[in-house]
């Protein structure tokens, strides 16, 4: 890459690019544009009323806060887990490493009913937590738990490779210059990890915002309390309120696009950081 090429002798450019663009347009771009075109059939006032209705506003607040909280929890524990996987040896490490990707492989509906069985009143953990006054299932806390589950691999798999590439020499140099371990971590390791931590956070956050399957079983779906934004779209669809559903969907899409751009910028930054270090 990066080497300026003269005339490329390889065939198939027109065919492969043409097919790629046609398939992308048919499967993704045209259908997505339908969301914006449909929401444009609403008058400005009706659009505004739909997206700022109390139930919608409550759902944005819940979806945003729970996604943010879950991404934060995952940054802390995901980094610890990545650290343990890269730096320590312990029995069962290979299995733990492979299992980190479980949330990618386990269908969200399965995760949803399993988490509900764990945290319901008579569930495996719920039976312990509820007498202590901690209700998880069918509350906003349940939404948080589900989003922690689906977001964990994003942080681990973003931080882990950076930790693996981190040269031991940097820490040795810091130590030989008299820095204690904590200072080395703060001034040497943490700055190197920062782009990966931010990228992992944003990926987990972006995924959590749109998550549906794992959440609806455990959330209880109480309007104004534990109803997430994707569920509002489903409810409106079931009432044949297509314009209303697309209005909410277009709000979510705009947020998703903004996050996608942020993720790209973060990854470019991380790439430059890595290149600068080598």
């Amino acid at each position: 890459m990066g080497i300026a090429k003269g005339r490329n002798v390889l065939p198939g450019f027109g065919l492969s690019l043409g097919f790629t663009l046609a398939y992308l347009s048919l499967i993704v771009l045209l259908p997505l544009s339908a969301v914006f075109l449909k929401s444009a059939t609403l008058s400005g006032a009706a659009f505004w009323d739909t997206i700022t209705a109390p139930r919608a506003m409550a759902s944005y607040r819940l979806t945003f806060m729970a996604s943010f909280g879950a991404a934060l929890v995952n940054v802390v524990f995901g980094s610890l887990l990545a650290w343990a996987l890269v730096r320590y040896s312990f029995p069962g490490k290979k299995i733990v490493d492979a299992m980190v990707d479980l949330p990618f492989a386990l269908p969200t509906a399965v995760a949803g009913i399993a988490l509900t069985a764990i945290y319901a009143k008579n569930g495996w953990l719920g039976a312990w937590l509820e007498p202590m006054g901690l209700k998880v299932a069918f509350t906003p806390l349940g939404v948080l738990v589900a989003l922690i589950f689906i977001g964990l691999p994003f942080v681990v798999r973003t931080v882990q490779p950076v930790l693996e590439d981190l040269d031991a020499e940097y820490e040795e140099a810091a130590a030989s210059l008299g820095a204690d371990r904590l200072t080395t971590l703060r001034l040497v390791v943490l700055p190197t990890l920062l782009p990966a931590l931010l990228t992992g956070f944003t990926l987990a956050f972006a995924r959590a915002l749109g998550e549906y399957g794992s959440v609806i079983f455990i959330a209880g779906n109480l309007p104004l309390v534990s109803e997430i934004t994707p569920l509002i779209i489903i409810t409106k669809l079931e009432q044949y309120d297509y314009a209303g559903a697309t209005a909410i969907a277009s709000v979510m899409l705009i947020v998703s696009f903004a996050l996608l751009l942020a993720i790209n910028a973060l990854q470019a930054w991380a790439g430059r950081r890595a290149a600068g270090m080598g």
């Binding site: 749109g210 994707p230 297509y242 969907a249 979510m252």
Partner: peptide, 13 residues
């Protein structure tokens, strides 16, 4: 980056 719910919705539209 698109919510699965919106993926379904756009085909309904």
């Amino acid at each position: 980056s698109v919510s699965p719910v919106i993926a379904g919705l756009c085909y309904v539209l």
